[in-house]
Design a protein around this nucleic acid. Structure first.
Lengths: 344, 344
DNA sequence: GGTGCGGATGTGACCGTACACATCGCGACC
DNA sequence: GGTCGCGATGTGTACGGTCACATCCGCACC
């Protein structure tokens, strides 16, 4: 009782207007306002007008929490990401954000701090406690996928990488094909001794690229050699390069991503070797800077933005109960620049 | 009435357990469960135990929407970002996410699609409709700040860049100082004709770096020349370089970021010029790749992660009603590598 | 002119939680 | 030994929407 009186007497706490306030101003019931908010078809144009005016006048915004509570629809999509500044994930995330927002969804992004099971579980728990309606997994480590299988995620989800574990939920660039394109390019240039510097062993994409590399070599009846496992950084490419070039029993390298390729080129320079004169190099990703490396890098382009958009489209379809959409892999593209040449 | 019976009769719709379900299982009142959830001090250890067990048994998760509704605290911090893949914003965002999550806050990130007023307004509207408790603005364009001033944001906010408009809300790396360090380095190497390739005119950081550049030159009594306005991309650096090097009436360049510096180096190579033999180059940001450019780039390092962490600390302090924290700018650091040399 | 129907609008209940307040039991104190 | 105080717990209510259902009205129909 007193509560109401106090509020009327001293309106110090400026409560945000609610649906009933709007209704009062518009001279209709709150239900009518609700109908306006939800684009109900059966509203008299004049009433619609009045309600809209009242909303405008009061600066009313529907309270998302209240709406989520009653509908049990959070209109939120969770994104499980690795804490990286890699070009691919970042680009994909941007595309996801835009596509989600346009569809009236918001994103709840969380980064995993490590690939420990506990860390992944806590990230998924966190997202589930936000009652996300769907999940997008960008963190591309194998262990994340294993954890996901264990955790029995109850909402629709997609991963932006393919694994054997869960192909039905995967949306992916055909990494194997990309790696084969890169390798084939080197083979066609006459190289027979080809090294591969891969990403970390537990990264799905690293594994797929390695597979593509090995298969292509095998198809060409060339000697395969154990790939070097790197960490995606330019520094690793550099130090690995310094080491490998001491022997130089190869004339070409397929490097798992563009950053490591950059580091490798750096090592070539320091070792007094010319690219592509002495060593041909192919990267992967086609980051915007790759065209300006010394020399400009031959690499495999992935359309990350497309993947991001598809992820949202897929999930929204599933949320609407539509039939499965196609999961065709996105095709990568070989971009030939100046870091590769015919074997001397 | 029937509602309850129906639910008991056919439990087809698996309603998530709520606080009363937990209470029933634990044999306490729902309020006691609520106390457990909120770490109330006055709970008998044995009761606590029972409630915890019940929560575990049912797999209960508190409903954030209901909590937000009743407390009118969304525990969400809005992030207004530009749609970029730049190293700095990405790194800062990651740090923000981690710091926010550790403090029990989640993030709502939205990208602006352009710097048009309408676009910014709609982004802010979007975030406000999520009832964010605070706002972090990463989008570093001047127009964003102007829009922010107009929009009268009612929640605490910080910007990760400094402007004349709103220094009280700014948290920033001292860009002017960074630019002065870079320029001074070139001056000390004996260069007298120094170019500057800047970022887009409407970017705050571009403007600040330009100011630092001009002031330092002026302090050294050197001729200042009109900076070139770029777009941060390696490609721009490349084409601008090709153009500028046709005249080559300068011996050093201070480039507004590392990507453009990379492109500029590319142009030097193509023009048959040696770096640093003919041209000295200083970049800005110290992206991880900069150490592996050809040659390794002298640049100015910014601690983006630190900025991100500080942003959250600042906002949380403000939300708790603490007194203003210090807004000391973060100091940048000059990293000298091999792209700069004494003037020939 | 009564009936049926459908469009437009209003009423009650409920979603799951936290806050304010009430209650209960028990030891300490004078 | 009665009262006070406090720790532990329970009860009512509000938050701001949406859904199911009820109501009202005007019109076409036989």
């Amino acid at each position: 009782m007193t509560t109401h009186d106090e509020r009327a007497a001293e309106p110090e706490r400026v409560r945000a207007p609610n649906i009933r306030d709007v209704a009062k101003v518009a001279g209709v019931s709150y239900q009518t306002v609700s109908r306006v908010l939800n684009d109900s078809p059966s509203i008299r144009p004049e009433t619609l007008q009045r309600v809209r005016a009242a909303i405008e006048e009061l600066g009313y915004r529907p309270n998302q929490a209240a709406r989520a509570l009653v509908t049990s629809r959070s209109r939120t999509i969770g994104v499980l990401s690795a804490q990286t500044v890699h070009y691919g994930p970042t680009t994909a995330t941007n595309a996801i954000e835009t596509a989600a927002r346009e569809a009236g969804y918001r994103l709840s992004i969380t980064n995993i701090s490590s690939t420990e099971y506990a860390s992944i579980k806590s990230a998924v728990d966190y997202l589930m406690s936000q009652s996300v309606e769907a999940l997008i997994v960008i963190a591309p480590q194998v262990r994340v996928f294993e954890a996901l299988n264990d955790l029995q995620v109850t909402v629709p989800f997609v991963t932006l990488e393919a694994t054997g574990l869960n192909t039905s939920h995967s949306l992916w660039v055909d990494q194997v094909m990309g790696a084969r394109l890169a390798t084939r390019h080197l083979v066609e240039l006459g190289h027979t001794e080809i090294m591969h510097i891969s990403g970390p062993q537990d990264w799905i994409e690293a594994e797929a690229r390695m597979q593509g590399f090995l298969r292509e070599l095998s198809d060409a009846d060339l000697r395969t050699r154990a790939p070097i496992l790197g960490d995606w950084t330019a520094s690793f490419g550099y130090y690995a390069g310094l080491e490998l070039l001491r022997y130089r029993d190869f004339s070409a390298v397929f490097v798992g991503n563009d950053q490591m390729a950059l580091g490798f080129m750096h090592a070539c320079r320091e070792s007094g070797l010319s690219v592509p004169g002495d060593i041909s190099i192919v990267g992967f990703d086609d980051i915007p800077e790759a065209a300006h490396f010394a020399p400009p890098l031959t690499t495999v382009r992935q359309n990350f933005a497309e993947i991001g958009r598809r992820a949202i489209a897929l999930l929204l379809g599933e949320l609407r109960g539509e039939t499965e959409m196609s999961h065709d892999p996105v095709q990568p593209e070989l971009i030939i620049r100046e870091s590769t040449a015919r074997r001397a």
